[in-house]
Design a protein around this nucleic acid. Structure first.
Lengths: 155, 155
DNA sequence: TAACCTGAGTTTGACATGTGAACTCAGACT
DNA sequence: AGTCTGAGTTCACATGTCAAACTCAGGTTA
């Protein structure tokens, strides 16, 4: 290995590091799976529980924390012919996790799932395939906003 | 909330979901912080420990798992005038976490750190500022590879 | 050569958290 | 009035976390 790249200290202190701050909120066995449910539109306590197999006590605790942190909000809604219920949906702060979500999905598909991916991300308007990447200033205008994208299942 | 968006089940099973697979590997209080150290070039057991404040027993355990999973590899290296030592550096699979890293950093900076960011990501060649985003097919060629980027500290 | 220092762990034992099963409680249905 | 369902809470036990003490190998000092 190239010894000149070795550092004895990280150049950014934990308290100045957005990545470190984010991990403290997101890095828990269940939290990101709960947020995944929210992205897919599953809002009910028992539905989330059945989908991901989380113990009730833990789900209750995590939902509480996610609401405190402003990532989810508790809302009241009513499905056709059903009574009103409460559910948990993403706030703006929560929806802003989209790129984290996509980045993890891409990595997981490539390295844990033999490159298979279950969804494609499309431009909502022209249905063009979208890809996550780092791009230069002159192309910033080409970046799609969260309102302009659509997640489509394959097959 | 728009009731038509509510689902009773996630459309992608956990076992087919790259995101879910990724969370099972990464979602632990310390794992992503250890990977952060690796990105910054901190490779030694004790240096990592001092930087992030992780207990030795836990660090030992996590490094073992990260090596098993092929995200880090244990290497032998020698600094000028020091004896040979072993350290932990990113593999290709580990470096592929760059976009996850950047996505989490962007989110954490925006939502946990008042928009302050400690680093900028530049094109290694023309020092253009780079940004993470979803872009359309005709611009795929503008996406920078991991070899072409450079993380610069602000100030 | 012996004593010491440092890095990289392992062991220990108290404490915290996670877990599944059983319990609660309120609103709607019969 | 009794039952069902959704959304939790409580319990008792297994697992994980933590700080401090211990180990062990190489290199340094006396």
């Amino acid at each position: 290995m190239r010894a000149n790249k070795i550092k004895r200290r990280a150049p950014v202190k934990l308290c100045d590091c957005g990545m470190a701050a984010a991990t403290q909120i997101l890095s828990d066995k269940w939290t990101l799976l709960i947020i995944r449910e929210a992205f897919y539109g599953v809002v009910r306590f028992d539905d989330i529980r059945k989908d991901i197999g989380i113990p009730k006590a833990v789900l209750s605790n995590r939902l509480k924390k996610l609401v405190e942190q402003g990532i989810l909000q508790k809302v009241t809604y009513q499905l056709e012919g059903e009574r009103t219920r409460s559910g948990y949906v993403l706030t703006g702060k929560g929806r802003d996790l989209t790129l984290v979500f996509v980045a993890m999905m891409d990595w997981g598909n490539k390295h844990c799932l033999d490159g298979k991916s279950a969804v494609t991300i499309l431009d909502k308007n022209d249905l063009q395939t979208l890809k996550l990447g780092l791009i230069g200033e002159k192309d910033f205008a080409q970046i799609r906003g969260l309102e302009d994208i659509h997640i489509r299942l394959k097959l």
